[in-house]
Amino acid sequence: MSPSTSADRPIQAILLMNLAVFIFTAMDGIIKSVSQIFPTGELIFARNLFAFIPLLAFMLSIERRVHLKTERPWGHVWRGLFGVLAMFCFFLSYKLLPLSDAIALGLSGPIFLTVLSVPLLGEVVGWRRWSAVIVGFLGVLVMTRPGSGIFDPAAFVPLLASVFYALAMISIRRLAQTERPTTIVFYFTLFATLASLVTIPLGSLDPALAWRWPANAEQMGLLVLIGLMGGSAQIALTIAFRRGAVSLVAPFDYMALVYGFLIGFFAFGEVPDAYLIAGGTIVVGSGIYIIHREAKLARERRRQATVPAMPVTE
């Protein structure tokens, strides 16, 4: 796909982003539905193993080959480690919490990304983004309601997932300087598939963590579907960011909150309360503003980089 087409199809980019977010959210709903049957490690294995089917088909059809050459193997290891930990915590949160709660709390990723970008990337965060970060954390407090007597400690699981997600995004930012997007996705999927195997011995400690073969064709089909949906959504996400600017596409990631509410209600009978809706709205607003500011600053940096230097006079 030519880079020249990366930001000239905004409507298509928005539609693809919404499609990706809907598929990911529907996949989360399926994961929740089978989370009492299969341990989290096995779900991660299925999510990544069967994702190779659409991912490899996409890479071969677009780039005619699978690009495996990398100059930064340890960068892929760190991205894989943080990504797998984030995926584990996200999947576990679907088991422990209502789907809409887990998704809403998990959307705090951009807030943690802004905070961690200062010490890890050396970025300068102005008062506007710091204000958005503070407002976002207030939204998280509204959703979790600590001290109210109904605080669920399981709420820390999607928040921890958001921290690992932010670390994974920082790793991707570093890798993207030299690596192809498809190469990053391939190595993460491979790393996650292999890393999930580490959870197999946990079954000897707790029977609930023991991997099990699907009891019937329906269960097997759901495991395969989880992977196919994950891989397909990743492809739609990749194309969306190629067809539209980040500032246009990224905010639609928060449609996951709407899709999560709808799937939670119709599939699991979940009714989000006023605190979840209010807090989730605050977090979404904060995240969108952070994305807007980062995109604006990025445009300003690009403009400054193209301004010719003034000649030195004595």
Rank of each mutant, 00 (worst) to 15 (best):
V284I: 13
R212P: 00
R302H: 13
H76K: 03
Y94A: 10
C89V: 01
E314V: 08
G221P: 11
A195E: 05
M255P: 00
G83R: 02
F266R: 01
A176S: 15
F186V: 00
S162K: 00
A250Y: 06
V271S: 15
F266C: 01
A168T: 05
A245P: 01
R243P: 00
L167W: 02
R128F: 14
L205A: 13
V133Q: 12
G80N: 04
V115T: 12
A51F: 11
W127G: 00
W211V: 01
S4C: 00
S162I: 00
L120W: 09
L262A: 15
P214L: 09
S204N: 05
A154V: 02
L262R: 01
I184K: 05
S286Q: 09
A309I: 06
I23Y: 11
E63D: 15
E71Q: 14
I103D: 12
W74H: 11
F156R: 00
A168F: 07
H67S: 15
V34C: 11
I103S: 13
R301L: 12
V163Y: 05
F88I: 02
A132Y: 09
P10N: 13
W74Q: 09
P110M: 04
G244D: 06
K296D: 09
P308S: 14
T189F: 11
M169F: 13
E179H: 09
G75L: 08
A267L: 14
L97R: 04
G136D: 05
V258C: 03
F156D: 02
N18V: 07
R173T: 04
Y275H: 15
E63G: 13
M27V: 06
F82K: 01
P3I: 00
L202G: 05
P181R: 08
L225N: 14
